[in-house]
Design a protein around this nucleic acid. Structure first.
Lengths: 187, 187
DNA sequence: GTCTATACATGGATAGAC
DNA sequence: GTCTATCCATGTATAGAC
């Protein structure tokens, strides 16, 4: 029965797309309505304010984030490798939502966006710490991820995608360091 | 003879302060004029547009950035340690300018701000690479720095200052990794 | 050089027809 | 449920007095 809210979802898609492509400031009600193919009034029927739109996106992120965390936990290549690799935005639904909400959060106008990001980060942190077994290594992993993510995704237009080979080299370094700190995780 | 442009500089100070304290969106001409203690008209005499203000700040950053790079090169505690430590914003003139310009750049409305940041980053990258002698390590150092910086400084209000002890631990890890990669830099 | 007054555009949101 | 028309607030920028 949660299969039918197509109209709302497509407006939310449009909101997400405009934020991602042109930045938060460009995501006016007019622009979002146009992108969604409806009028401003039509949009405001589904989301009665701009803050309502932000909440909708934050909820979507929370939903997708839960799935993402499960996939991360079960990643065959290992949690750290998967986590770092996924720090460079590729364009899946979770990435798109995360990026858009991050942009919203930056403006400082939507506390709900900041809260949603904090919740995602907390989930990651717990999983990474549990996985690597050392707080310092976990911190390093999270910092590198943040560095990658923010660098690549934060500035609309100036996207600099890092080469995959370089990325793996960085991951190797992190895992080597992790071994240094926790040499015998099993015994 | 470059000692007298007090009025312009104080307007620029106000611009910087408002951006830092309340975010780029709150830095309207009205708000900046009020902060500087002048009228909107008075402000616009010195900077004929908002983009002009952004350019002024970008130039200030470039000026301070040159000094910063020299100090980094000569840091007695070592370049990497100094660099990572300085990634957490402390409030010196360079930090203030950098933070403000970063916020401007995020909006996507001021290409001059993005350019100024890119120039700063390029200077850092060259120095770090030269210092650690290994591209992968340099990349890691820059990523950690970015992670630290963006996390702490990007969201107006939600500033999370990382503990100094944890920071040093991260630096130790980076330097240990650097030794792994370049065991005998002299021979 | 600094001020007031004002023009002009844009964005969020309401009212009410269809 | 979606539209048009409109109101109101805010932000940038200009004109011209002092």
């Amino acid at each position: 029965m949660a299969q039918k809210p197509t109209a709302k979802e497509s407006v939310l898609d449009a909101f997400e797309r405009v934020i991602t492509d042109k930045g938060e400031r460009a995501a006016t009600l007019d622009a979002v309505a146009a992108e969604a193919g409806v009028s401003k009034g039509g949009l405001l029927y589904h989301f009665s304010s701009k803050n309502d739109l932000a909440e909708g996106l934050a909820e979507r992120l929370a939903r997708l984030g839960a799935d993402d965390l499960v996939q991360l936990r079960d990643a065959p290549e290992g949690i750290v490798r998967r986590f770092i690799r996924s720090s460079v935005v590729v364009g899946n639904p979770f990435d798109n939502a995360y990026l858009a909400v991050a942009r919203l959060a930056q403006s400082g106008l939507y506390p709900v966006a900041n809260d949603a990001l904090a919740a995602i980060e907390a989930g990651w942190r717990a999983l990474i710490e549990e996985s690597v077994g050392d707080a310092a290594v976990a911190r390093l992993v999270l910092l590198v991820s943040d560095g990658l993510y923010y660098n690549a995704a934060l500035f609309p237009g100036a996207v600099t995608p890092p080469p995959a080979a370089d990325l793996d080299e960085v991951i190797d370094a992190l895992e080597a360091f992790a071994k240094t700190r926790a040499p015998h995780p099993a015994s």
